[in-house]
Amino acid sequence: MKKPSKLYFEKSKLILSLAFLLSLSACNQSLTMEAKTDVPTPLAVKLPLSIGVHYDENFRNYTYEENSEDRQNWAIKSGTSQVDLFERVLPSMFQDISHIEDISGTLITDVDGVIVPEVEEMQFALPNETKSDLYEVWIKYKVKLLDKNGDLVADWPVTGYGKSSTEFLKSRDKGLQAAINSAFRDAGARFALTFSKIPAVCQSGATGIC
């Protein structure tokens, strides 16, 4: 019987090593990504208000982090996208928009009110977790409206839900990215359409829009 050559063993080792590395990468659940947003400019009739907007550090740098058995080392950065979302939506809603860097204890003149968005919660669901063909994302904001003195006039929740179907050869990152963008669009739409209907906002002296 012919003895296998040295080249045969080398080739076998290489294939086994590749298969081992492939199986390791298949089990890797870690995720690092930066959410991107593609929200169009809303079609809206501008309210005759001069509104300030303040994004705090937590909002600007918001990162969803999770380290569980199923979601090892998840880090989804979305601060920049959340700022982009409000930067796209707010100028179409109000006559004038200005950025307020500091809202602590100073009198803010030249504005009718200041909007301060905060991310309260973000949730994700993957197809294998829900036994569906969908990537799903929920986002919940708390939006505050302050008066010129920096006092709270109203706060209300704004939620957004987005989903994206699994398609042939669509990666987890792409599926989540599409669902996140869809959730941002939904949150922006709800914010733009409900702002003037929030009773506290409507009745407040800061806006006087009712």
Binding site: P40, L43, A44, V45, Y161, G188, A189, R190
Partner: peptide, 28 residues
């Protein structure tokens, strides 16, 4: 995109009668 935010999944009209309400908005 052109009609944002009126034709998103959660905001789109579910009935033809709702279009009547939408067209009251001059921008739409």
């Amino acid at each position: 995109d052109a009609m944002y935010p009126y034709f998103e999944t959660s905001t789109a009209p579910m009935d033809v009668k709702n279009l009547d309400r939408l067209v009251q908005n001059p921008a739409i």
